[in-house]
Design a protein around this nucleic acid. Structure first.
Lengths: 153, 153
DNA sequence: AGACAATAAATGTTTTGACATTAAATGTAT
DNA sequence: ATACATTTAATGTCAAAACATTTATTGTCT
């Protein structure tokens, strides 16, 4: 379904406007797909994201601030996300001996197990992207990088 | 800044995973830009979106359900968004004579004026997308459509 | 006509996001 | 050493999103 059909709009101001609209629409579409896929695991996309980041750092611990820097939405509240995941025993949180302001966050065994299951359903869901060739996928990704060159954040 | 730098992640599972991550990241980036640009007008991106939809339909009125169908995020609550915009006199809402369940929503003169101003700052912000050629922009947009072909929503 | 399903919008409730503020610990300059 | 700024994480607060439910009206079938 073209973006024109999806939002029932025939005309766009210019190609850039059309791209902007489509970008946001498609991202929402992807996020909703993920949300649905993760619901069975009682994980929000952001919680899933944090777990993946922690697994990437494993066995090294991460600080909350370091998690934040790697998140897709940097304005989100990593502290409370860690709280949620801790309550589910998906990670451990210990105060850091060398800097008592900071905390060391590490994914737990249970976190690993849940992530492994979740990865499978996410992979299935991600197959939507396989409508493009690998080259096209990387090309789009590069162009997205180009878009953001204008202004950093 | 490449997506690798942006989220401090060197490796991705495959080109598709990288694209998915970049898509969501770039959409968030765009949304935050818009949010900042619209703050001066006390409009959220979604409220702005609704006003633009209503302007597109003008002089015809729209039902809440029709607005919803054209929104970028279809799970958002159009009813309450209309409430907010009504409180600011940016639109009018009258119950529809032919179907008393429905309401007719029309953008107001004041809504037109605000939108005209907001459009200008959004246009400036949207110039980030001009790092691509018009052909590239349309090409990316087409590929986003392709991605969503897998499953509708 | 009456019963029941379908549709439109609004509302209630709970969770999450945005944003500022606070609290504690550390770094730095005099 | 003291004062002050900076960093780190947590918290408070208010607005917005998510999701189910409700209310009113219309459509449909017998």
């Amino acid at each position: 379904m073209s973006i024109e059909e999806a939002i029932k709009q025939k005309k766009f101001v210019n190609p850039y406007h059309k791209l902007g609209v489509n970008l946001i629409y498609t991202s929402n579409w992807l996020m909703h797909q993920q949300q649905e896929a993760l619901r069975a695991f009682d994980l929000s996309p952001q919680q899933y994201n944090v777990l993946r980041i922690l697994r990437g750092a494993f066995p090294l611990p991460m600080r909350v601030s370091a998690i934040c820097e790697r998140m897709l939405d940097k304005t989100s509240n990593a502290s409370r996300l860690v709280d949620k995941l801790l309550a589910k025993n998906l990670l451990t949180r210990k105060s850091c001996p060398s800097d008592r302001r900071a905390v060391n966050v590490v994914i737990s065994e249970e976190g690993f197990r849940l992530l492994q299951e979740a990865d499978q359903v996410i992979a299935v869901q991600e197959e939507a992207l396989h409508n493009l060739t690998p080259e096209e996928a990387l090309s789009v990704s590069d162009m997205l990088d180009t878009i953001r060159q204008a202004n950093s954040r």
